[in-house]
Amino acid sequence: MAYPRRRSPVAASPMSQMNITPLIDMMLVLLIMFIVVIPLATHALQVPLPTGKGRFDIAATNTVHIDTRDRLLWNDQALNSQELLNQMASAAALPDQPLIRFEPHPAASYDRSARTIALIKDAGIDTFAFAGNERYRTFDAE
């Protein structure tokens, strides 16, 4: 004998809640697509590091000079930025750091001078001086 079906009052009323399962599925698919499509960050910060010992002798007082053609000179011997960084690191590693005098030519570029000062600072030099500024103490008014 079959039992008659009962109608419950809950089943007879219409459903009033929205089914959000498909919405969540689509959001997850879109999230995965964005993760795959967006490129990774490709920028890099270049930090100069010393690559070895300095090749020139380190005296008690050393002069870093920039000439009119923006060449670097260590005690009147030409070198490039990496070699200057190596010299500075060798000087900074000494127990008694030597005095580093910075003497750019007036026609040297400001950018080269600023980069050289930053390189000296980053190398850890504590005894640093600007030399030759007394020549520019007075200006001729023309």
Results as ranks from 00 to 15, higher is better:
residue 5 R to W: 06
residue 7 R to L: 15
residue 8 S to N: 14
residue 10 V to T: 14
residue 10 V to K: 11
residue 10 V to D: 10
residue 11 A to M: 10
residue 12 A to E: 13
residue 12 A to R: 12
residue 13 S to E: 14
residue 13 S to N: 10
residue 13 S to M: 15
residue 14 P to V: 15
residue 15 M to I: 12
residue 15 M to N: 11
residue 17 Q to S: 11
residue 18 M to A: 12
residue 19 N to R: 12
residue 20 I to M: 11
residue 21 T to Q: 12
residue 22 P to K: 12
residue 22 P to S: 12
residue 28 L to G: 10
residue 28 L to N: 13
residue 28 L to Q: 13
residue 29 V to A: 13
residue 29 V to H: 05
residue 30 L to Q: 04
residue 31 L to H: 05
residue 35 I to T: 03
residue 35 I to E: 02
residue 36 V to W: 09
residue 37 V to K: 05
residue 38 I to K: 08
residue 38 I to S: 04
residue 39 P to Y: 10
residue 39 P to F: 08
residue 40 L to C: 01
residue 43 H to M: 13
residue 43 H to C: 07
residue 44 A to P: 00
residue 45 L to R: 13
residue 45 L to D: 09
residue 45 L to Y: 11
residue 48 P to E: 09
residue 49 L to I: 15
residue 51 T to F: 01
residue 52 G to I: 11
residue 54 G to P: 02
residue 56 F to W: 04
residue 57 D to N: 07
residue 58 I to C: 02
residue 61 T to S: 11
residue 63 T to N: 03
residue 63 T to W: 00
residue 63 T to E: 06
residue 64 V to T: 01
residue 64 V to P: 00
residue 66 I to D: 01
residue 67 D to L: 13
residue 67 D to Y: 11
residue 68 T to N: 10
residue 69 R to K: 13
residue 69 R to A: 14
residue 70 D to I: 06
residue 71 R to H: 14
residue 72 L to T: 00
residue 72 L to N: 00
residue 72 L to W: 04
residue 73 L to P: 01
residue 73 L to K: 02
residue 73 L to Q: 06
residue 74 W to A: 01
residue 74 W to E: 00
residue 74 W to D: 00
residue 76 D to K: 12
residue 78 A to K: 11
residue 79 L to Y: 06
residue 80 N to F: 02
residue 82 Q to A: 10
residue 82 Q to K: 04
residue 84 L to C: 05
residue 85 L to Y: 06
residue 86 N to Q: 07
residue 87 Q to Y: 03
residue 88 M to I: 14
residue 88 M to L: 15
residue 90 S to G: 05
residue 94 L to K: 04
residue 94 L to G: 00
residue 95 P to N: 07
residue 95 P to V: 08
residue 95 P to C: 05
residue 96 D to N: 08
residue 96 D to H: 07
residue 97 Q to S: 05
residue 97 Q to D: 05
residue 99 L to N: 02
residue 99 L to T: 09
residue 100 I to L: 09
residue 100 I to P: 00
residue 101 R to A: 06
residue 101 R to P: 00
residue 101 R to D: 02
residue 102 F to R: 01
residue 103 E to K: 08
residue 105 H to D: 15
residue 105 H to L: 06
residue 105 H to A: 14
residue 106 P to W: 09
residue 107 A to Y: 10
residue 107 A to Q: 13
residue 109 S to K: 09
residue 112 R to T: 14
residue 112 R to L: 05
residue 113 S to K: 03
residue 114 A to I: 12
residue 114 A to M: 13
residue 116 T to I: 07
residue 117 I to E: 07
residue 117 I to D: 01
residue 119 L to V: 05
residue 119 L to D: 02
residue 119 L to P: 00
residue 120 I to E: 00
residue 121 K to V: 10
residue 123 A to F: 03
residue 123 A to S: 13
residue 124 G to V: 06
residue 124 G to I: 10
residue 124 G to H: 09
residue 125 I to Q: 06
residue 127 T to P: 00
residue 129 A to H: 08
residue 131 A to T: 02
residue 132 G to Q: 03
residue 132 G to E: 05
residue 133 N to V: 09
residue 134 E to Y: 08
residue 135 R to L: 08
residue 136 Y to R: 03
residue 136 Y to W: 14
residue 139 F to D: 06
residue 139 F to G: 05
residue 140 D to T: 11
residue 142 E to D: 11
residue 142 E to W: 07
